[in-house]
Amino acid sequence: MKQRFVNLLLPLAGIAMAVAGWWAASQAVPDLPSPLRTWEESKLYIVEPLTKRGETDQGILLLAWYSLMRVARGFLLGIAIATPVGFLLGVSSTLTRMFDPIMQVLRPISPLAWLPLGLILFQKSEPAALFAIAVCSMWPTVINTMVGVRAIPQDYWNVAKVLRLSRTTTFTKIILPATLPYTFTGYRLSLGIAWLVIVASEMLTGTPGVGGFLWQEYNSLVYAHILLAIITIGVVGFVLDRLMGLAEARLRAV
């Protein structure tokens, strides 16, 4: 009982300190809204989270939902490419040697750099955003899947060998289940990156969502809403990671 109380109290104390720091900063910088002002100006968005008042003037959950859907599409596109690529690189050292340098060069490129390229390629902002999300978020899945295939114990390969399993059976009954936990860790990391990219891509393309909202409110000088957007992005990202973590734990328990 006491332990649980402490477990609850300590994070709350941390949050209180962070808010205090925020308040102190707002006293020093006149343009930065204090926590209280932020709450007052954002209240409408939080107490009516699903109300649509205009194209960008919407409840915060509605905005987050748009962003989530965009992330989901970009993320699914990313892992749909990354998973098979990861398996191929895992089984073939020739392919790995061929593509590893390219991967290492593409991996650190910022979403801000991919976005204009996406706009050139697809002419429209929505597919460009998906392109940027997919390209940025696919790497952890590629790499984790590849590592997962390489980490398959020799014992399992021996089973495939002595039972003379076909290529398809070896893949579905041995490689796939043995790699799944690694791949899933890749998915979790990829989703984290996809969520990072969403803000940048919405800011640049001006599409409705938390990121787009953030940029628009900055341009209309409603600084409190920037903080609201930032906190929302953080909370949603945290919840996503926790959900993926739970799914991952279930998977490993099998």
């Binding site: 014992d155 399992y156 021996n158 089973v159 060998k161 002595v162 039972l163 003379r164 399993l165 076909s166 059976t169 009954k173 041995i174 289940p177 043995a178 099998v254």
Partner: peptide
Amino acid sequence: IRPDSAFVFQNYSLLPWFTALENVRLAVEA
């Protein structure tokens, strides 16, 4: 490896994601 041969390893070499029956079935199916 001959189709009429079988191999038993020291470290069991069972697939952990399959039940005992599924492990044996994999060999029977092949």
